[in-house]
């Protein structure tokens, strides 16, 4: 193994940050804000799309994408769905408690490369969380980009994340936000249908569009089909992958996907890099 792949030792040591707020987004999803523990401590900057390893002391550590505004320094924001022991411990932690943080790690959404281009965001479920920093960046630098289109699908109206923000973003010029849910009750008057059905309602300019996609892998597979059918190239489609990340620095190999380690070569990949490896059995 080359020396370059060995992580410096401090990357493996969590830094204790203070849990500032815990906000309920949906019945099982919460947004956590971490702040510095002291005046001397400075929380690291991050690029949209990156993740941290969050450590609940005495419970365990897991990778969580950063969902906050990259321009807001001094805090780190994460949106976490409570689905297991560590995530449950995270979302039931109380403000003031310490959470261990390593990172940020991984590749970022191609925001510099997308200057002057239309940005198409396609998100499913909790997949909106890692895309929110990219959306916030584009909104903050609105003049640097073409149209911003966000297509977002969730399981039900109760599962839609950041609902107030989504509504507010729709009023920004050249910005189109369309939500849909897989199942709607009679009180829901919005769109019903999987996220791929929303493509019928947008007209893309494939040569000048960069797509950023995050959600369950099966959703991304069908979204990619729609994007390719509309003329986007493999290199203009960017996907955020999820694997069993442990060390987060390409050392342990738990998150290997074909020739890549998702933690350090990803989590954001172009479809061109991934297409041989997506949906391969036991990969």
């Amino acid at each position: 193994m080359s020396a370059l792949t060995l992580a410096p030792p401090d990357v493996m040591i969590p830094v204790a940050a203070r849990l500032a707020t815990v906000d309920k987004e949906t019945h099982d999803t919460f947004t956590l804000t971490l702040a510095a523990n002291s005046r001397e401590q400075e929380l690291p900057a991050f690029a949209p799309g990156q993740f941290s390893m969050l450590y609940v002391f005495a419970t365990g550590e897991l990778p969580i994408s950063i969902s906050g505004d990259p321009a807001e320094r001094g805090k780190l924001v994460y949106t976490v769905r409570s689905v297991g022991k560590v995530t449950h411990a995270l979302v039931t932690s109380r403000p003031g408690e310490s959470i261990g943080v390593r990172g940020p790690f991984g590749t970022a959404w191609p925001l510099k490369e997308s200057y002057g281009r239309d940005v198409l965001i396609v998100a499913g479920g909790i997949g909106l969380a890692p895309l929110r920093p990219a959306i916030l960046h584009v909104l903050r630098h609105r003049g640097d980009y073409g149209r911003l289109i966000v297509l977002y699908g969730a399981r039900s109206p109760q599962d839609l994340l950041f609902r107030k923000q989504l509504s507010a973003w729709n009023y920004v010029p050249d910005t189109l936000i369309i939500n849909t849910v897989d199942y709607g009750g009679l009180s829901w008057r919005g769109n019903v249908g999987v996220v791929t059905t929303l493509f019928r309602h947008v007209r893309l300019q494939p040569a000048r569009t960069t797509a950023m996609v995050c959600g369950p892998e099966i959703m991304m597979r069908y979204v990619v089909r729609e994007l390719l059918a509309r003329g986007l190239s493999d290199e203009d489609i960017h996907l955020s992958m999820e694997r069993n990340m442990k060390c987060a620095v390409g050392f342990c190999g738990h998150c290997q996907l074909g020739p890549y380690f998702v933690c350090k070569d990803g989590p954001i990949f172009t479809y061109g890099k991934l297409k041989r490896w997506m949906d391969r059995y036991e990969l």
Binding site: D28, R81, V83, G124, G125, I126, G153, A154, R155, D159, D182, Y183, G193, V194, T196, T197, G215, P216, I218, M219, Y222
Partner: peptide, 20 residues
């Protein structure tokens, strides 16, 4: 065909906490 495909994806319940 496109509605059939969409319904198949809905049946998978992709966003379920347990996964598809």
């Amino acid at each position: 065909a496109s509605r059939l495909q969409a319904f198949r994806l809905q049946l998978l319940d992709m966003y379920s906490p347990e996964g598809p």
